[in-house]
């Protein structure tokens, strides 16, 4: 299963490292990544594959939501099919 992780919020050091480190701990593979910073606003979109992981979607997703307890960054994880369904005929 593929999923899209979206991270948004105020830019600071270590956001990519924190998300990627957690994904690695969960034994998920990062397949693609896009990152932009606009006027200090950080937006990162990451496609991951859960195929090699023994963790469920729910476990990975819940861990992600606890990754930035300071509340300055929002992380969400959704199945990739929803984005295909919205934009591909």
């Amino acid at each position: 299963m593929k999923a899209i992780i979206t991270t948004t919020g105020r830019d600071r050091v270590g956001i990519l490292a924190a998300v990627a480190g957690y994904i690695s701990e969960m034994n998920c593979n990062v397949e693609d990544i896009s990152q932009t910073v606009m006027q200090g606003n950080f937006v990162m979109i990451m496609m991951i594959s859960l195929d090699g992981s023994s963790h469920s979607f729910e476990e990975v997703s819940e861990g992600l939501s606890r990754l930035f307890p300071q509340g300055d960054l929002t992380v969400s994880m959704q199945r990739a099919e929803i984005f295909d369904a919205m934009h591909r005929v």
């Binding site: 937006v43 919205m86 934009h87």
Partner: peptide
Amino acid sequence: MFNPSDIKETLGMV
């Protein structure tokens, strides 16, 4: 692999 603008548009829809 994926188009970031499509993803941002979908997130905006919600």
